Simulated scan of single mutants.
Amino acid sequence: MERLHGGDVLMLLMRKDILNVDEARCCVAETDLAFESIQKSSYIHRDNKHGNLLLDRYGHSRLSYFVLCKPLDCGTLQEQEFSVGDNVIEILETEERSGASIRIQQ
């Protein structure tokens, strides 16, 4: 593993307080590419936070802490796992019939 002398994004935000537009775009783009490369390898990084984004000496970010990564095997997913939306609709309809108030958060 390479040694990264730039700290992490959390320390960067504490030092600078506010990033300019170009720095923010670069940070978001590199973070997006890091997560995309993990997902293309059929893994899910489940500890996403700015403390796990390390910076090298040039300011480029690297994703770290893969302890909570989970392999994603799409072949074993069942159809029932995708029917969450139907269950939510049934619950809302049941609450509507019983007269309970429904609060929708935006």
Rank of each mutant, 00 (worst) to 15 (best):
L19V: 09
L10H: 14
N48V: 05
Q39E: 14
Y65V: 01
Q106S: 13
R15Y: 11
L77T: 03
E81P: 07
H60D: 14
R97H: 12
L13T: 01
V84M: 03
T94I: 09
G6M: 02
R97V: 15
I102S: 08
C69S: 04
V21K: 12
M1L: 11
H5I: 06
E79T: 13
S61K: 01
E81Y: 11
G85P: 00
T31Q: 12
G59Q: 03
A34G: 06
T31E: 05
F82N: 07
C27N: 02
G51I: 00
L33R: 10
M1Y: 08
E30F: 01
E90I: 01
Q80V: 12
D32G: 04
D73Q: 03
L92A: 13
R97M: 14
D86E: 14
N52M: 01
M14Q: 15
D32W: 03
H5N: 14
T76Y: 11
Q78I: 02
L55Q: 00
L19M: 14
S98R: 12
R62Q: 10
S101H: 11
N48W: 08
P71A: 13
V84F: 03
T31K: 03
Q78P: 03
G51W: 07
C27H: 01
E30Y: 01
Q39Y: 10
D56V: 04
M1P: 14
Q80P: 04
R57H: 14
D32A: 03
L12S: 03
C74T: 02
R57M: 08
N52P: 02
Q105I: 11
Y58V: 00
N87H: 11
V84G: 02
Y65K: 12
L10E: 14
G7A: 00
Y65R: 10
S61V: 01
L33M: 11
E23Q: 04
S61W: 03
L13W: 11
I38M: 07
V21D: 02
R46Y: 07
K70H: 13
L54V: 06
E2K: 05
R97C: 12
R46S: 07
D47S: 03
D17C: 03
Q105T: 13
V67N: 13
L92N: 12
I102W: 08
T76N: 10
C74V: 05
Q80C: 15
R62H: 15
S42C: 06
K70G: 08
R103Q: 05
G51C: 06
L68T: 13
